[in-house]
Simulated assay, not measured.
Amino acid sequence: MIQDSMASFPDSPLAPPASAPIGTAQPGGGWVMGLEERWGACRRWMIRAFFKDHLARFNARRLGNEDPKQPDSRIIDQRDLKFLRPVSGVSFEGPDPWGWRGRLGLARLGLGEVVVFSLLLTPCWVAHAVLGVTVHWAWWIGFAPFFIWNLFTIAFFRDPERLVPTGDNLIVSPADGVVTGTEEVDMPDFPGGRALRVSIFLSVFSVHINRAPFAMKTAVVRYYPGLFLDARHADCAERNEQLWVDGFAAKNGLPIRLKQISGAIARRIVCWTKPGDGLNAGERFGLIKFGSRTDLLLPVGSATLRVKKGEGVWGGKTVLGEWKA
């Protein structure tokens, strides 16, 4: 049976100095997110001013505790839940008219970066290509970096479907990347004060979607501002910016911890699960924008690992190990 008590997860003395309030799914902010928020405010103003039918239609479908009559309400329809779902009790009955954005093969919370960088880079490589054809071949030299940068940005936010292995005793990888460590570490708020940690390094070429390693229930989500050391640095697990998802495994009720850790390049952690959410094995719960690290912590002696340091893994697909009986 899954436990519900958040008191089982006090602040750990091994955490970065202090947690910070979570105001959005991307608590560290970012300039692209800032642009999206400004556009959202403009869109909501236009809807309230010129599209009263749209406002009334979605107010009728609205569920939750935020008052839609308040002029400063940040939620009009499902688009506004993109960053606010973790901190809002609002939802909408019926289908999501913008649900197709999650079926593009790209991370929905990375579409802002894809659009912004494409708008900046596409005119550059198109102009170099045109000048290379019409003026001089040397313009093609400038074409390559802009075109490759544009393709890289799109590829970085790819979000492929994964066939999740079946079996309630299996533990699948929460991320794509390379296993950089499997060891026991001090963790005072775990049974016995120790935890089995599996660390996965995600390079800039990895898929950066994070997935639940097994069926679980989220108990606590905490965000810790910090440094941006290389994700392979020995101290990054304690000193870097990170977000913790604490919960309980559905199979046995054991406490578990998922840590999204920023890196030297990755500076934007995204997590859309919130306390009380149930997650299925392989279900997406967040992403880290650009190179990073994901840690899975389990009670010592609770599982048998099948992977070792240096092995490549795929989120929601590779079996890391299995629960002991």
Rank of each mutant, 00 (worst) to 15 (best):
R74V: 00
G89N: 03
S88T: 06
R103N: 12
E113N: 11
W100A: 13
S118V: 01
G105Y: 11
L63V: 15
K82F: 03
A49F: 13
M46S: 14
R108Q: 14
F51L: 14
L55G: 07
E113R: 07
P86H: 08
F51W: 14
G102A: 12
Q78H: 07
E66D: 15
P97L: 08
I76N: 00
A107G: 10
W45K: 13
L111P: 00
R61L: 12
I75G: 00
G94P: 14
G99M: 08
A107E: 10
S118A: 06
F51C: 14
R74H: 05
I76W: 00
S118F: 04
A49T: 15
D72K: 06
S88M: 11
V116K: 00
R101A: 05
H54D: 09
L84D: 10
S88P: 05
L55M: 12
E93W: 08
L55Q: 12
R48E: 12
L106R: 10
D80T: 06
K82G: 05
P86I: 02
A56C: 08
P68S: 11
R44M: 10
D77E: 04
L119Y: 02
R101P: 00
L109G: 14
V115Y: 01
F50S: 14
M46R: 15
Q78P: 00
P86F: 06
R62H: 07
V87N: 06
N65F: 13
P86Y: 09
A49K: 15
L119P: 03
P86C: 08
R48M: 14
N59Y: 01
F92C: 06
P95E: 06
G102P: 03
D80P: 02
G99P: 08
L106E: 04
R108H: 15
V90S: 03
P71R: 06
S91M: 01
M46V: 15
V115M: 03
Q78Y: 03
L84V: 08
Q70F: 08
F83P: 01
G105T: 10
A60D: 13
V87S: 02
R101V: 05
S118L: 02
Q70L: 14
F117P: 01
L63C: 07
R101D: 01
Q70W: 02
N59R: 14
G110I: 11
L104T: 11
D77R: 00
R62I: 08
P97G: 11
S88A: 10
F83N: 06
G94V: 07
W100T: 03
W100K: 08
G102T: 04
